[in-house]
Simulated scan of single mutants.
Amino acid sequence: VLDFEHEDEVLARANATEFGLAGGVFTADLARAHRVVDRLEAGTLWINTYNLCPVEIPFGGSKQSGFGRENSAAALEHFSELKTVYVSTGKVDAPY
């Protein structure tokens, strides 16, 4: 925990790291909390709590803190590849 004078100062300090797994903001001012987490470079952020990871929300980092997301549909999408197949059941006019 480090003190700070201005939001820009603490945001610059937090974002200067090469890592970005998670972070938390504790404040009574929810508008400020949302403004700060919007500018923080981390994959998972909490406001007025920390390290809660229910299985239905994505968890993962940014920068050098990994790639992809664990938990939720986001994890399934990471390990899946979408393929589209269109099948026409009508008569084929072109001979092959």
Rank of each mutant, 00 (worst) to 15 (best):
V1W: 09
L2W: 03
D3C: 14
D3L: 05
F4A: 08
F4T: 03
E5F: 00
H6D: 10
H6C: 06
H6A: 13
H6F: 12
D8E: 15
E9G: 08
L11Y: 00
L11K: 01
R13Y: 08
A14Q: 07
N15T: 11
A16H: 10
A16T: 07
T17L: 10
E18Q: 12
F19E: 09
G20V: 02
L21I: 13
L21Y: 02
L21D: 06
A22L: 08
G23M: 05
G23E: 01
G24L: 10
V25W: 00
V25P: 04
F26A: 06
T27H: 04
T27N: 04
T27G: 07
L30R: 00
A31E: 12
A31N: 12
A31W: 02
A33G: 05
H34W: 11
H34K: 09
V36P: 01
D38Q: 15
D38W: 07
R39E: 15
L40N: 01
A42N: 03
A42T: 12
A42P: 08
G43N: 03
G43R: 04
G43A: 01
G43S: 07
W46I: 02
W46G: 06
W46H: 02
I47S: 01
N48V: 11
N48C: 10
T49G: 05
T49N: 15
T49W: 06
Y50M: 08
N51D: 11
L52E: 15
L52T: 14
L52W: 05
C53K: 12
C53H: 09
P54M: 04
P54Q: 04
V55K: 04
E56C: 03
I57A: 11
P58V: 02
G60K: 10
S62V: 15
K63N: 03
K63M: 02
Q64E: 12
Q64Y: 01
S65L: 02
G66C: 05
G66Y: 00
F67V: 15
F67H: 09
F67S: 10
F67Q: 10
R69C: 13
N71V: 00
S72E: 04
S72I: 03
A73L: 15
A73F: 08
A73I: 15
A74C: 01
A75W: 01
A75G: 04
A75S: 12
A75R: 04
L76W: 07
E77S: 11
H78W: 07
F79D: 01
S80A: 11
S80R: 00
S80N: 03
L82A: 12
K83V: 07
K83E: 07
T84S: 15
T84R: 10
T84H: 14
Y86W: 13
Y86R: 12
Y86G: 00
S88Y: 06
G90S: 13
G90C: 05
G90F: 02
G90V: 04
G90D: 12
K91L: 09
D93Q: 08
D93C: 01
D93V: 08
A94T: 12
P95M: 02
P95H: 04
Y96M: 11
Y96K: 11
